[in-house]
């Protein structure tokens, strides 16, 4: 695990910035990628959003006050970037966010970077039916295996509230998959 405070300090120091940024990118790229991918679903969009996330981090690192962990701060940026990306795309196409997300799930069947079987495809369809918060919590807990405390800091929600959201999401998904 990298020394976060030292890394932040290096990121704010002109002479060490480039090297520190490389360390930052290499340390967090995969975790942030999977968070973004769980929201935008296809690889090309996830790549765009991941790049924009790091560019935003790079440009705004001076504004990072250390009130939260660097990881949580970046995760929050990545999540917001991905959600905004979806909203912008839906608006561009003149459809609701829900309709746009249904379309994303339908596209998975032809996606070369989705190697899921029928159950995994059904799971994505089921996840798409969840409210936004439950969707985020489920993906972060179930697939990314983040701790409730980490999710709490990222989403600024109480641990109790997260547990309730997660269990509701699991129940709904199980119900959906059993019925299907």
């Amino acid at each position: 695990m990298i020394e976060e405070e030292a890394l932040v300090l290096d990121l704010k120091t002109k002479s060490k910035q480039a090297q520190a940024f490389e360390v930052l990118v290499n340390t967090y790229k995969e975790r942030l990628y999977w968070q973004i991918r769980s929201i935008v679903l296809n690889h090309q969009d996830a790549d765009d959003v991941l790049q924009n996330t790091f560019i935003k981090v790079y440009k705004n690192i001076d504004g990072f006050k250390g009130d939260s962990k660097l990881f949580s701060w970046m995760y929050r940026i990545a999540t917001n970037e991905a959600l905004n990306f979806i909203k912008k795309r839906a608006k561009l196409q003149g459809v609701s966010d829900t309709d746009y997300q249904d379309k994303l799930v339908s596209n998975l069947e032809a996606d070369v970077y989705f190697e899921g079987d029928e159950i995994q495809l059904q799971l994505q369809k089921a996840i798409a039916t969840l409210p936004e918060k439950q969707k985020l919590v489920f993906n972060m807990k179930y697939f990314q295996e983040l701790k409730y405390e980490e999710i709490s800091e990222i989403l600024d929600t109480s641990v109790g509230g997260l547990k309730a959201s997660y269990h509701l999401a699991v129940k709904k998904l199980e119900q959906y998959l059993k019925e299907d």
């Binding site: 769980s38 790549d47 989705f114 995994q120 799971l123």
Partner: peptide, 29 residues
């Protein structure tokens, strides 16, 4: 434990990335 065992929810999300995507990501960025 209550939410994990005997779940019908698959553990693998089945999402893939192109070969060497993460290796070359920093250069692209």
């Amino acid at each position: 434990k209550l939410s994990k065992p005997e779940s019908v929810i698959p553990k693998d999300s089945a999402f893939e990335v192109p070969d060497n995507y993460f290796e070359s990501f920093h250069d692209t960025l």
